[in-house]
């Protein structure tokens, strides 16, 4: 028998459909109660993530189709999502689809330091693997991505930011 977790784990992110919510680290918990009801916990990647409603509805829909009639989806705000929670499989899927996966998230200690220079990251072009890349913008088409350009193959690409 398929567990509710296994069903929930197949739901993909609405903005990066190559990733499941599990790969993205957004799916925090799936509990099946004795009465057959299912309680799912998800966490937003960013405070204003506009995909939360879609994620919730997709989870409910998929679980309903699998026979779970009573599904609750709750928000878990703490601990705050970190790009470190993206699984290895998720990172491979991102790279395969032309999106550069994040490096290690910064470790918080003391007051947050100001950084007036372009963020230094070890980023490789997901298409030609060249490391000759330049940052175009720290803010991309979704809150979780920055924009880069490869100066060898000249392709622009997106990089999932470290937070």
């Amino acid at each position: 028998m398929t567990t509710a977790y296994a069903v929930a784990a197949t739901v993909t992110d609405p903005e990066m459909p190559m990733l499941t919510l599990e790969d993205l680290g957004v799916l925090r918990d799936v509990r099946e109660d004795a009465d057959g009801s299912v309680d799912v916990a998800i966490t937003p990647t960013y405070s204003g993530c506009p995909a939360m409603a879609t994620m919730r509805d997709d989870l409910v829909h998929r679980l309903r189709d699998a026979g779970y009639a009573d599904v609750r989806v709750r928000v878990e705000l703490s601990p705050a999502w970190s790009s470190d929670w993206i699984t290895d499989r998720g990172r491979a899927a991102l790279a395969e689809h032309g999106i550069s996966p994040p490096g290690a998230a910064p470790i918080a200690s003391g007051p947050v330091a100001l950084n007036l220079l372009p963020t230094r990251r070890a980023v490789a072009c997901p298409r030609c693997r060249s490391t000759a890349v330049e940052l175009t913008s720290e803010f991309g088409p979704t809150a979780c991505k920055a924009l880069y350009r490869c100066t060898d193959c000249l392709e622009p690409f997106e990089h999932v930011k470290e937070i």
Binding site: S47, P79, A108, V112, L116
Partner: peptide, 17 residues
């Protein structure tokens, strides 16, 4: 506390920008 923890990560980007 939870809203703040997430907000800190976001505002760090805003301030640097």
């Amino acid at each position: 506390a939870a809203v703040a923890a997430k907000g800190v990560k976001e505002l760090t980007y805003h301030r640097d920008y």
